[in-house]
């Protein structure tokens, strides 16, 4: 049987089918990353560089002494911390509120998810107005709400102050992605067989204990997925910040700085080096994750 099967199924047919895509990925993903890496080792510091030389890791070393780069990097890390924690918590809360089913669930779920369908350049207009820094009598947006519900002391400069800018910038990001996290957790919760809960209930376990000791441990693959997804989105964040604050110094992150380096200063070598730094920060988490996913799939067969 095996032998005849092999004869009928020509294994190379499939390969030929996907060959165009393999070539495309090899050139446009891996080849171009390689090209960018090589460029980051050269001296093309402006559009007029004619004599291109190999300078090694100099561009990377110089990034660390470039205050604007370290500023953008620290902004990015602050943003990432608040964004990931905020998204996880709010997505998890939404999922917990919905997971047992409730009348009107579909309505709430759809509202929590719609931000994913809108571009951040568009939502940036609303958020810029909501996070307007005028206070008290001039207050608009969120400051106006805070003032009128008796929380005037909480009025904020939002994304315009040096100290709080990245934390404020994480708000619209959480707003956009929390629904996605909710969906992942809902899928996770609802993939756990009901028997597990029932058995624990029969044994007299409290609802809290059921979540703590039975449901959450089952969700660890979901937690991992959420971490990877939020992490890589955060490292790349661009539109969201550009849509609200364009190239403002206080909210600059690596992706914005890279864009500025290329377009405003035409410093290709440095822009390439920044891009590679972003890539590496993503790759250290994503590559092990992909290997893990691949392995679990093989094991499930």
């Amino acid at each position: 049987m095996r032998a005849t099967r092999k004869k009928i199924q020509n294994p190379w047919g499939g390969f030929l089918f996907v060959l165009p895509s393999i070539i495309a990925m090899a050139i446009f993903v891996y080849g171009m990353i390689g090209y960018t890496f090589v460029e980051s080792l050269e001296n093309r510091y402006n559009a007029y560089t004619t004599k291109i030389e190999f300078v090694g890791l100099v561009n990377y070393i110089e990034l660390w002494s470039d205050p604007e780069f370290t500023h953008a990097l620290s902004n990015l890390l602050k943003f990432t911390a608040v964004f990931m924690i905020g998204c996880m918590l709010s997505g998890l809360i939404m999922a917990l509120l919905l997971e047992k089913g409730i009348k009107g669930e579909g309505f709430f779920r759809s509202t929590y998810l719609y931000p994913m369908a809108i571009s951040f350049i568009a939502m940036g207009t609303s958020w810029r107005w909501l996070m307007d820094s005028a206070r008290d009598d001039d207050a608009t947006g969120l400051n106006y709400i805070l003032k009128n519900i008796g929380l005037g002391a909480l009025q904020s400069d939002w994304y315009t102050s040096e100290a709080g800018s990245m934390y404020a910038m994480a708000l619209p990001a959480i707003w956009q992605m929390a629904g996605y996290v909710m969906a992942l957790f809902l899928a996770g919760f609802r993939g756990i067989p009901d028997d597990l809960r029932e058995a624990a209930r029969v044994d007299g376990a409290s609802e809290y204990k059921i979540y703590r000791h039975i449901l959450f441990p089952q969700l660890s693959p979901t937690f991992l997925t959420v971490l990877i997804i939020l992490g890589h989105i955060s490292m790349k964040v661009f539109d969201l910040i550009f849509g609200i604050a364009t190239k403002s110094y206080v909210t600059k992150v690596l992706a914005i700085y890279m864009w500025q380096t290329i377009f405003d200063f035409q410093n290709y070598a440095k822009g390439a080096a920044i891009a590679i730094v972003i890539l590496l920060m993503i790759a250290v988490a994503v590559i092990p994750y992909l290997i893990y996913v691949n392995k679990t799939e093989e094991a499930n067969k």
């Binding site: 171009m32 990353i33 460029e39 890589h232 790349k236 920044i274 891009a275 890539l279 994503v286 691949n294």
Partner: peptide, 20 residues
């Protein structure tokens, strides 16, 4: 090969923009 495709989903497009 499929796994190497998937990596393309996660890359920051800044890393391919200059040669593209």
């Amino acid at each position: 090969i499929f796994t190497t495709f998937l990596f393309g989903m996660f890359i920051p497009y800044q890393a391919i923009m200059i040669p593209l």
